[in-house]
Nucleic acid binder design. Structure first.
Lengths: 250, 250
DNA sequence: CGGCGTGTTGATTATGGTCAAGTTCTGTGG
DNA sequence: CCACAGAACTTGACCATAATCAACACGCCG
């Protein structure tokens, strides 16, 4: 089943990466969940014209550099990314992960520059909306303006909830939360909510949740022993999603 | 000096609460740091006309109720507030604190409703901008639109940074962060950055930082023993701000 | 086949949580 | 103004969870 599932994902990946034919939002596989999905048709058409389809970044390459002025918003087309910042003593704190259809760079609106690094976890292709262009469009397209404000508000809600959760939950709860969160984001894209492949390492997960990689490994093993999940390296299958969900504090 | 300082704050409080004479942003003591400060004068004047000066809430009263549709944005005029949500088993997770000049309710833009409770920590007076009014003004005032987007981005950056910090820092680091953060926010208002009175209880601080109140108490005592701060109940004086700041991870 | 990334598992330790007294502060009524 | 009650805070003793240190297993690529 592992291989069968991988094949499915590879096909999915292959389909999405035939980008030469996808020069507009209309032909894009993500158009049901992406930014234009919430815009009136004529606004979507105008936005479409402002979007640049960027070249593919290789694994480990940076989409956004720490300290750089904000030049664009990005939407992940395929692949995935993590954002992180460095502490004074040089270790990473992972702020979050980005999946296809998700917007990258919103936090840059605060200071007009990005205070974190965003790097590809696997080959990454994004759509790019230059910020000057976007500012101008927000002037004239009320739907787009509302949508950007909505996305900012949503991200803020998510970030506040995350920090509240991290503060109050133990290692099991944090990892359960991570799995449930990932699962629902994949489901939104029409992928399986119960089996998926992690694009991030145990270390990345640990650094995102404020744990150590050993703890992440141990908790996943515990979930497996309890029959709640199946784990094989980065492949995860939720056998009893309710059991995992019940560990998540609200 | 404790009492002398208290007197100063009470005078400040008294001055700010003579609100009957402050029916416009121009006369407001906060007008250098509040929303209109970043708007062109004519936009500020128009916004001023849309602002409602609300009555005073007593300590413990809710400004925003969990689950309610978003009806307005608020700016704290005087007093302070905390926002929190409840876990399944009924205990509070404190998301943050709001001081005069700070905007309350931005996270509501995500779902159009508030998923947290905001309550007064001391007698609270706010300015209120009805959301319908604000939406309409954003249509016509580009400066206001940019400012709301900027504030959302800033809040998002702050929230992401907080959760990254909570994940990677120990109790001392978290409390140091809290003190430094509060200090700089007070300084921005023109108040002392080194001595202030906490409006929130140890329990609130603990629930905000993912600690227990005993731990908060112990760490503050440790800082005092080390000569870094002076603590007397809710009064705090930073004796060696550098020592505290050095504990904050970047 | 060997070497390096990444991940797993075990033994030990330390940080902060828990439980339990106490102490100080605050507001209220005499 | 003082006495009192209840809340908020402090401190100590003990314990549990996750960090640390260390060894080992697995998968991938040259």
């Amino acid at each position: 089943m592992d291989t069968q599932w991988r094949t499915r994902v590879q096909r999915d990946g292959a389909r999405a990466s035939t980008t030469d034919t996808e020069l507009s939002c209309r032909g894009c596989a993500l158009n049901r969940i992406c930014l234009p999905a919430h815009l009136p048709p004529h606004e979507a058409r105008i936005l479409d014209g402002a979007v640049e389809r960027s070249r593919e970044l290789t694994t480990g390459a940076s989409l956004i550099h720490t300290g750089m002025p904000m030049q664009a918003l990005y939407v992940v087309r395929n692949g995935s990314a993590k954002s992180y910042c460095l502490t004074a003593d040089g270790d990473e704190r992972v702020r979050g992960f980005y999946l296809p259809g998700e917007i990258v760079g919103l936090e840059g609106f605060g200071a007009g520059r990005h205070m974190c690094e965003v790097v590809a976890l696997e080959p990454l292709r994004c759509c790019r909306i230059p910020i000057a262009r976007l500012e101008h469009l927000m002037e004239t397209l009320p739907g787009l303006r509302r949508e950007i404000v909505r996305l900012l508000g949503q991200s803020l809600e998510d970030a506040q909830r995350l920090s509240a959760d991290l503060g109050t939950t133990d290692a099991r709860g944090r990892i359960a939360r991570f799995l449930v969160n990932l699962s629902s984001r994949l489901e939104r894209r029409g992928l399986s909510a119960t089996q998926f492949s992690l694009s991030m390492s145990r270390t990345d997960i640990a650094r995102h949740l404020g744990l150590r990689l050993e703890t992440v490994s141990r908790v996943l093993s515990a979930f497996r022993r309890e029959g709640s999940i199946e784990v094989k390296a980065r492949y995860i299958k939720l056998l009893r999603p309710e059991a995992i969900a019940s560990l998540v504090a609200q």
